[in-house]
Design a protein around this nucleic acid. Sequence first.
RNA 1: GGCCCCGUAGCUCAGAGGAUAGAGCAACCGCCUCCUAAGCGGUAGGUCAUAGGUUCGACUCCUAUCGGGGCCGCCA
Length: 574
Amino acid sequence: MNIFAEIRTSVLETLDALVAEGRLPAGLSWGNVAVEPPRDAAHGDMATNAAMVLAKPSGRAPRDLAAELAERVVTDPRIESAEVAGPGFLNLRLAPAVWHDVVAEAVDAGGAFGHSGLGAGVKVNVEFVSANPTGPLHVGHTRGAVFGDALARLLDFAGYGVTREYYINDGGAQVDVLARSVYLRYLEAHGEAVEFADGTYPGDYLKPVGEALKAKVGDAFVGKGEQFWLEEVRDFATEAMMDLIRGDLAAIGIGMDVFFSEKSLYGTGRIETAISHLEDKGLIYVGTLEPPKGKVPEDWEPREQTLFKSTDYGDDVDRPIKKSDGSWTYFAPDIAYHYDKIARGFDELIDIFGADHGGYVKRINAAVAALSGGRVPVDVKLTQLVRLTKGGEPVKMSKRAGTFITLRDVVDEVGPDVARFVMLTRKNDAPLDFDFDKVTEQSKDNPVFYVQYAHARIRSVMRKAEAMHLDWSDDALLEDPAEFAVARKIAEWPRLVEIAAKNHEPHRVAFFLYELASEFHALWNTGNENPALRFLHENDPQATGRKIALPRAVEVVISNGLGILGVTPAEEMR
RNA sequence: GGCCCCGUAGCUCAGAGGAUAGAGCAACCGCCUCCUAAGCGGUAGGUCAUAGGUUCGACUCCUAUCGGGGCCGCCA
């Protein structure tokens, strides 16, 4: 139940009635009519802009129209009063029973409270992480991973059919580099002294892979040329790296539904099929690109290449799909990959890239628009950098020289819950400061703690209530303004879920939980001033049962919200 | 040179085209015999980078400019 949507329906019905009576002209669109929480609580519980939006097309003065609407709309028993304000707002005050019912619904619905029909029947593919299978995930990947997973959970909560997907870049030169690096570790495992030249990966994490390779093939590859072992070592090493990455993802609570191999597109005709699809639309041609403006590479010279006419779909220049030697560029399998997603019947695609891939967005948009005939929208989200600090000092490298801070480093230091929550308290396209000390601090300026603390307080109350052998009653007793304030916030939850899901913005959930926690902590303190407002009343089980419905509803929302963020609610803070 | 993102309180940041732009921190003043004070209440703090435009209405949309970051053929 989204009470805002319901009251909006009521307003629209009133408008329909005015049309039927000839008080408003026919043919008006209600599309821009909104019912929203007002910014200032003094303006009531909800406000509608209906009169202002409809004033011009209906030739009415906004305040007059608002007044007429006000007269009619109060026949809805849920609407206690309606007041014209400002330039033509209609401020609505709802009956206390509405908030009472909201609390009861939250308590009854539990984990389903806030579920939405928004995404019913819509299949959406969320592709994220997709890090090269050449090493452990580092902190940059972590943000994309957390963001993608939270977005997937959010969409799932809003009723979409969600597939989480990882694109394995196992088709390019970097997996050959990986294979050679593992081969060196393999020789090392056989007691040979090895040297890691430029263009190989020197990281320690490949040592066990070299040893595992030795255990598997013995000395079969020792002293042999690349042609004997490259392919097998590449497959072996890639699989080992994907195991490593799957482990990293699991450490922060992420499981993928599909791992899609780039390699599976080569030599199987799948790239050719996708490209021929574009060819049929006249979007593939052979040509020579202009040199890039500004900083021209030193060795630049004009080359004839096979190009995709992405400029037809808003890109700045056409993009090469074949190198001058005739082999595919990275973009070609990417086209085929997105073609495959479309063919699998997804209604919406979401790609999550690091900010350094910003230049790639337009060509992905172009490719998907061309391949799907504009049917399938794709939203490419970029996650900005994470600035790691400890006690205010920048942390850039881990102790092992030359390696980036890994996802494991972060999880080991602060735990998966803190890492996830903090990374979701920023919009994806804003840089994020992550201070190892601050994020574990137990104070109000740490939102993780603040929200968890509210939950822990409620759990404490609930445990005590259970000890009194009573259960919540859904007949909530609401008296104080602070109680109504909390109930109003709870009523906003279903609406917030829909807004966040539509905009692909899970950070809104984190901010909402902070606000809800704030309302709750305020309510908690009213119990200090006025013991009658406390949740637990030792000698009055009935009153207690009715009083704990509200904190129980808060618990439901915090728990559901943290579930979307992938954070475990805290039972206690000790 | 082009493209993308960002610019909101001293700091870190929210803000579905709506009213007098919000929160936390820092500053100042209050609240613990009390279900967890790890908390709550209050005061103060603003040219929403700048200039135009669209609109009944712009922090929000459009254009230009300034400032910060990222990216820019045969790497992925």
